[in-house]
């Protein structure tokens, strides 16, 4: 067993003659969280979908745990690598109960003890057992994203691919989900690859970041260097500047603030 959980080398992906990912390479160590940041159209989600096995037309090499994976993945692969999607409203089957959604991977792989595993998965993501037989539309956005995470975890994978897991959520719910992801990483010894457009979110969860622009990973850096401003590529610098500008709230000490009583 190597220390390298994921290795991606010279990954190229084209959609009808247009190359959208032009030779991306990175490595992720076991238990590490790697962030990919970029704007829409930079190819960041496309990279993730090729890694997950959803997109079967790519060139290059993708290795999990030292083994190169084929374009068409085996069923066993999906027990090791799972994905969480951006939109909690679109990633749960609208006509299936949470119970049915969670049990799919167990049924497909003939994994037993469905009841126990579902109950454990629900408690892992801090959802009440009463949610088990409800339908997705009866849950809030944050609860749905918890279901999506529970589904990804239920077959005890080693790697979780996170595609903008919090960008459709309110900030207060985002905080809960980010904390949950951090806890789960600890408990289950998971390796994450997380895609986001939000540098603050990425830096919160990840140790290393790859910046993508126009299908290229233009820079890889540690979060410390990013924070300190030790970055070389202009796009990284610009994303950093925008993120810092927003955080730095105008803070002039002043008097008039009418808070509602009850504060």
């Amino acid at each position: 067993m190597s220390d390298r959980m994921i290795e991606v080398a010279d990954l190229r992906i084209s959609f009808s003659s247009a190359e959208v990912v032009k030779g991306v390479a990175f490595e992720v160590a076991r238990g590490e969280t790697f962030g990919i940041v970029g704007e829409s159209g930079s190819g960041k989600s496309t990279v993730l979908r090729a890694m997950s096995g959803l997109n079967e037309s790519w060139d290059g090499r993708i290795l999990f745990n030292g083994e190169a994976v084929p374009k068409r993945r085996s069923r066993e692969f999906f027990r090791k690598v799972q994905m969480v999607f951006q939109d909690p409203f679109g990633s749960l089957h609208p006509r299936q109960t949470i119970d049915r959604i969670l049990s799919e991977i167990l049924l497909v792989n003939r994994i037993g003890e469905i009841d126990r595993r579902i109950n454990k998965a629900l408690s892992d993501v801090a959802l009440p057992q009463t949610a088990r037989f409800r339908y997705p539309h009866q849950l809030s956005g944050g609860q749905r994203q918890r279901v999506a995470i529970a589904r990804a975890l239920i077959a005890e994978p080693k790697v979780l691919l996170l595609d903008e897991p919090t960008s459709a959520l309110d900030v207060s719910v985002q905080a809960e989900v980010l904390n949950l992801l951090a806890d789960l990483r600890e408990e289950h010894g998971l390796t994450y690859v997380m895609v986001s457009h939000n540098l603050a979110v990425i830096s919160h969860l990840c140790a290393r970041v790859g910046v993508m622009q126009n299908g290229l990973m233009v820079e890889q850096t540690s979060v410390e260097d990013l924070r300190a401003g030790n970055v070389s590529h202009p796009h990284t610098q610009e994303l950093r500047r925008l993120s810092v500008e927003l955080e730095d709230v105008p803070a002039e000490p002043s008097s008039v603030s009418q808070a509602k009583p009850g504060a």
């Binding site: 997950s52 096995g53 999906f78 994905m83 679109g90």
Partner: peptide
């Protein structure tokens, strides 16, 4: 092409299923 069908594929479900 919805995410919930993608999720089923990631569960290893066959096209038939």
């Amino acid at each position: 092409s919805s995410d919930f069908i993608a999720a089923c594929r990631l569960a290893g479900a066959s096209p038939r299923r």
